[in-house]
Design a binder for these strands. Structure first.
Lengths: 191, 191, 191, 191
DNA sequence: AATGAATGAGCGTTCATTCAT
DNA sequence: TATGAATGAACGCTCATTCAT
């Protein structure tokens, strides 16, 4: 009788364990030996669950997309007006700052390691990109995807700026500025 | 003495020649052989001008900081009011979009390859960071560095989003949105 | 006791199932996973029946030797004169060309993977070598083993030349030439 | 000023140094580390001269083909009649037995490691095959390539049988038998 | 100042074998 | 008996760096 495990769930656990290490050092700077050590298994076992280092990385990106969709939905569930939603989103980002900063690193790496001519055609990219678009549009209750993309872009800028920094206060401060900007913009231009 | 000046200038030329290649493929994905081929010299000669691959990269980051300071100053020189300065800055970014996007890649790589615990203490980082702070503050004619940082952060977000994309129109559109946001914010909160 | 007979027979069946795969890809290019998949059992089960990959391979060589002895005896049973026996042997080889070519591959592999200093002392080699010697001597009805070895050597050359080729006609043609050569030789030198 | 070397010639020397090791242990059983140690250089230097282990192997096969063409031509140069040529060829084979046996191993390995469906289309194979065909046809002074191929096939059989054996006497004896067979065949069937 | 052959530690990956179930 | 997840040494290969010329 073989050892019974929920392969699917175990693989997700392994992905989560890789997250911190990959975010801290970057895809290219983490070896498979380091990864397997972080996972507490042998390199061979790692290759039992993932066909390659690259595949592991892409599965991680997908997994993060899945988690974020849930998280953002939950964060803005109680808010009804647009200003309230913006504030809720801001609080969520501040609360999980460390997580989102790490994720930005992962996402940068993903861009970097993709062939520029293929990144837009990459099914993983397309899927996750649409996921975020959908999540942010829903979270803010906006009809216009373009503004949603804009907001997410700004957030990414903030996250990227936080790389290597541990100044939590400055991050909150800048999120606050962003919320004020959005509010001022909506007051002036409507919606 | 003149010999030294030539050396200095030659090294800057070499750095500029590396820029496109490093931005296109990323620091970790470019070999020293590829770099020296791009430069049109041997690997040995490259090590004559730069003590290591990493040092070459850091010198490139510094060089870019120097160039940008000049460029931003020139772009906003004619404008006198804050809205004019914002618009001038926006035009400059849109005009040199390709350059700034490549630079964002370089900058990401620099963060990534630095030890997180050392990045803030890294003299190269400190110098270039202050340079940008100063440049953007001067360009916008703001007394408050915090807002300058905020603007630059937002711009970085836009640049990062352009990675792998060639949609020039979307970039201009989002810069336009950013200018409107800033304007609305300043109208409401003053300065 | 009957249990043991079944085990023995089951192991022979397993060996036969491996034959094609090993001949097609070569010992070193077939993994134990591929073998066990071909056998329709798990790797663990395979190791229950064979102590190692190498042992499985050696048992296959022995099994083939056993089968050939029977086959060659049957092929030349009806013939009474030496020319008739030669012709019968030739027909048998042509008829089972694909089988013998595969076997040649197996046999090459066996030599290759043996330590050169030990191959002559290898009991598996000694046993099978004597088996072939005996089989060919009996088949041709020759008193002199040296000529039997010579014939078998020539046949091996033909088989080896067929590796990777699917030109069935050429094989038959060359077997025909071999038969003529043998006949001419026996006519001139007697026996 | 770079170290001046005749790259082409040095590469040939390296190939020759690999010959014994590859023949003794087989392509798949020799590691790149073992090869580079045999060559007296580092693995990196080996990859400076050969793009891959497989390429090194194929270049060795080509180099052997080149050497053999010269050797066979020289061996039969003085002989004028067909029997004399056959005898000369036989002496050449006996004299360089060890070399030809090793070469047979290399050749077997080459077949084994080629995709069966591609071996006939492999340019290396085609070139060397034609080389041998031409060499043996010229050496024996035969108009008919088919008989040349036949002779070479028989010789290959003998060589293969010598794998792992060091019985030089038996080899000479069998070459002698081959010469007698050929002579008897030509006497009976002409040419 | 300049060359490029040479180094060798370290990479991502494979696979014969083991063993808890 | 039988399973297949797990192991880890070893593989082919890369590349930042050095150094004899």
């Amino acid at each position: 009788m073989p050892k019974v495990v929920n392969q699917e769930q175990y693989r997700r656990e392994l992905l989560c364990k890789c997250f911190d290490l990959l975010a801290a050092k970057g895809y290219a700077n983490v070896t498979t030996r380091q990864l397997s050590q972080e996972l507490g298994i042998s390199t061979g076992a790692m290759y039992h669950y993932f066909p390659s280092k690259k595949a592991l990385f892409e599965q991680l990106v997908q997994e993060l997309g899945r988690q974020d969709e849930v998280m953002l939905k939950a964060a803005t569930e109680g808010a009804t007006t647009v200003p309230e939603r913006i504030a809720s989103l801001g609080r969520c980002l501040i609360e999980h700052e460390a997580y989102f900063v790490k994720q930005a690193v992962i996402w940068m790496d993903f861009y970097q390691h993709s062939d520029p001519r293929e990144v837009l055609g990459n099914p993983v990219f397309q899927q996750v990109d649409q996921q975020y678009q959908r999540a942010i549009t829903t979270a803010l209750g906006l009809a216009e995807p373009k503004v949603a993309r804009f907001v997410w872009t700004l957030v990414n800028g903030l996250l990227v700026e936080q790389l290597g920094s541990e100044d939590c206060f400055e991050f909150a401060e800048q999120i606050d500025l962003l919320v004020k900007m959005l509010t001022a913009y909506f007051e002036k231009h409507g919606m």
